[in-house]
Every structure is written in structure tokens, then in C-alpha cells.
Amino acid sequence: MGEPEGQKPGGRGVSRRALLIGGGAAAFGTAVFARDDLGRLWWRMPGVVKKRKEGEVDAKGAQWTAASAYNWRRADRPDDYTIDRVIIHVVQGGYATALRVFKDPAHRAATHYVVRKDGHVAQMIRELDVAFHAGDRGYNERSVGIEHEGFVDDKSSFTAAMYASSARLTAGICERYDIPVDRKHIIGHVEVPGTDHTDPGPHWDWDRYLRLVRAARERLEAPGRKA
């Protein structure tokens, strides 16, 4: 699930950032960079640090458990990279295993969220930052990754509590970034171009999951109601 930095990036931001930090802004002048692009990237200049609130989560009810800083990249999404995908993963192990490896700087990969069988959610990376989870730089920059406890070849891994909790989580992400609830925008890790991963596997019930996501999003959009 790592993000090979030598790979040609997809999406937006990398070429602009390389030029800006490398002094390209001075060389090419403001004619090269649109005003809004410069505004989005001001904090990437050396010595500028974007303010963060320690332990803040994006999803209501999630527990903050920080991933290693080696497993994600600081960003300012959706201002610098458009978020238009949710990517579903399966750990091939337990919840505790996922948290342990995502805290390991040598792992060089992590998702934004991990969902336990009982529905408990840990947030390990802020949604505004780029998690190294898809194995493709462009997909990392455009997506939020959700890991699920369990095994791709074990249907019993995917409990009703897990489906319901994950669906509420995905509905909230889709609501925040105006992402359509469909199979083009909510995908499995297996569907990332060039991946050798198979998760979430044949036992993940996509029809059931999308029904739950749609229902949760409708509750979010209903006047005076929350999912």
C-alpha cells in the first residue's frame, strides 16, 4: 500500500509543488501560476506549517490513533487535491494488527481509518492529508482510505456492525466532499490501476454496502437529522 515517490503522479499538485519549492515561482513569474493555485500552496513554502489541532477527527465518534508520519504526507485537501474517491481495504488480519503496522515507520503505508468488527472506528490520518494506502500516487491524493478488520477469503469477517459503521463513515466522507455514492467513486483496493492487491475480495457485499451508504447519506441530508 506504499506510495512510490518515483512514480509519475496522477491528479493535481505535484508538478506545481515541485516548481514552487524549487524556485520555479520566481523563474516563471505569476503568469505561470493561477492566483488560486498559489493561494492553495502558500503553506508548502519552507518554514510554513499549517496549523493542526492535536487529536482532532473528521468523523464523529472516531477514536484518534495517529499513524506514523512516515506513512502519510501533509496536504491541504480538498484545496490542493480534489477528493473524489473512497477506497475500501481489508487488513488480512485483526484490528490491532492494522493499528500496529500503521504506527510503524518502516511500513510506509496506512489508511485514514480502520474499522473493527464491532463497528468501532479509529482515525489514523486526517482527511486533509494524503495517506499512502492505494499503491498509486494519484489515487492516494484523490481518495480517503478505509481499512477493515478481517480476511478477504472469510465471509464471516464482514459483520453487520462493521458494514453499518463503515457505511456511515463513507456517507459522511461523500457528504463532505460531494462524492457520488456509486461504484465509480467507492471502489475496492483491487480496482486501483496497477495494484497487486485483491481486497476487499469476493465476499465483500457491494450491493448491501452501497444501500447502507445511500441510506446513511439520506439521513445526513435530511433537515435536522444526523446519521
Rank of each mutant, 00 (worst) to 15 (best):
T198M: 08
Y139S: 05
T97R: 04
A18C: 09
H120M: 15
R208Y: 12
D178L: 05
C174R: 03
V114N: 02
P202F: 12
A164M: 05
A164F: 02
Y177R: 10
A69T: 15
M45S: 11
G119F: 06
L169E: 03
A215V: 14
A27E: 15
Y95V: 03
F132Q: 05
D153F: 08
G138R: 02
A122M: 14
P105D: 14
K103G: 15
R211L: 06
D80P: 00
E175L: 07
V181F: 01
Y70V: 14
I187Q: 02
E221H: 14
V181K: 00
T198C: 07
L220V: 11
W43H: 11
F28E: 11
L41W: 01
H197Q: 15
T170D: 04
R217A: 03
I83D: 00
A26T: 04
A96V: 04
V14I: 12
P4G: 11
G22P: 07
P200S: 14
Y81D: 03
T97V: 07
S68H: 08
E3F: 00
K53V: 13
R100T: 13
H107P: 02
D178H: 09
R176Q: 08
T159C: 01
G119C: 09
F158D: 07
A215L: 14
M124Q: 09
G11R: 13
S68F: 05
L210D: 07
G22H: 06
G93S: 02
L41P: 00
E5G: 01
R217L: 14
G6Q: 06
L128R: 10
P180T: 12
R108S: 05
H107W: 08
L19P: 00
Y113I: 04
G2V: 06
S15Y: 09
K155N: 07
A69V: 13
Q92S: 10
K155R: 15
P9V: 08
R52Y: 12
S157G: 05
G13A: 07
Q123H: 11
M124A: 08
A109Y: 00
T195E: 11
G55A: 06
W206Q: 15
